[in-house]
Design a protein around this nucleic acid. Structure first.
Lengths: 200, 200
DNA sequence: TGGTATAGTGGGCATGCGCCCACCATAGTG
DNA sequence: CACTATGGTGGGCGCATGCCCACTATACCA
């Protein structure tokens, strides 16, 4: 193997590899060596980029949150320009990944949610999340009643979409009041996109 | 040390010890030996009660969920008899524990939520959760506006209460329709209790 | 182009991990 | 009371882990 050939964004590859290992082999299999092997790099790389394996783990979580924030920002941007459906695809595909959701949910309540709410008024962003969840649920209930979704369909993915979409709408809205119309519009678009892409 | 002296509910003590270790020393410190030492028992005990350390980890999560379910059931029972405030205390103290919430959130979306929704209709329990969250948030907003909660108060605990109360109301309600009046009553009681106990 | 900083490699080492097991104390049966 | 089942103890073993480091190749800059 060649030495010194610079890896393209080593941290990114290590993060992705870690998530793959965690999903495939479980929590105790998530070792520094396993991550390096999965990423196809030497085991020393991890320790050149992170102080600790503990530090790597912490950064892994922060990275996941940051990526979802980016996707939310992209979605909000595209919602303004009118090309919603197109830009939704990538963001949603990634957002509905079960691993991502699981990892995020681990700390989101303890760390990120705390930090966010600390900068706003208490319970400010939560209503937006909850509202979206209510709308999504009732909408999906109708879809189900109308037979457009099978009653025994991938309900787990459905639940994950709920959480994902809720977070999507919640992210980055600390300063502004919940715009019910906009929320409704985005939620509808999300569902339509999900249904079209047969993710349900 | 005496051998053969039976430990009072060894599994329970191991679970509790594991949570303490996880909170205090982080994820990589959560080893079978550390758990045993924290629990004050020999390291062999864990392997007599669980097939694997992996199995222990899985059971740890399942246990946390089960305990919250029990608390929710107790709360629902007491809500019927009218002695709500009294029985709330224990359930809430445990429910608002940040570690508990973090652990639960790790898998609740991936495992438990899936299993639950699989047995009901799609998106059935979710509206209950969301409704409760909305009400709690708006109520707390009012409390804040009225100056009854300091604007810079423990907002993280507040957020955790939101999630906890939401889950509390969601648990075990798959078969029955959301009773708006009951939900409202419980939520109000929860907040009152929390405020009184100065948990915020 | 030579020099320096940066980044990747892989051998190796001490540590501590999960797990096994021989041993022993107690609880529960007739 | 003897007998068995259950459950706790702690020494120890093999091994894989996290981390270090000497070495090497590339990138960047004067």
């Amino acid at each position: 193997m060649p030495t010194g050939v610079h890896i393209r964004d080593a941290r990114r590859q290590l993060f992705d590899a870690a998530e793959r290992v965690l999903l495939r082999d479980g929590p105790t299999a998530l070792t520094s060596r396993a991550v390096a092997t999965e990423a196809g790099v030497a085991k020393g790389v991890l320790h050149r980029h992170f102080a600790d394996f503990d530090a790597f783990l912490a950064e892994l979580v922060r990275d996941r949150i940051a990526r979802i924030d980016d996707q939310a920002a992209a979605l909000r941007r595209s919602a303004g320009t009118g090309t919603v459906a197109g830009n939704l695809t990538g963001a949603l595909t990634d957002l509905f990944d079960p691993v991502a959701t699981a990892i995020v949910s681990l700390v989101i309540f303890r760390d990120e949610l705390r930090a966010r709410l600390r900068h706003g008024r208490p319970g400010h962003g939560i209503p937006v999340l909850a509202e979206a969840a209510v709308m999504l649920a009732s909408y999906l209930g109708e879809e189900c009643a109308m037979g457009r979704i099978a009653a025994d369909a991938d309900v787990d993915t459905l639940a994950l979409s709920l959480i994902g979409a809720g977070h999507l709408l919640f992210a980055g809205r600390e300063g502004t009041p919940p715009e019910t119309g906009a929320v409704d519009k985005v939620v509808t678009t999300v569902i339509a996109d999900v249904l079209q892409r047969r993710l349900l």
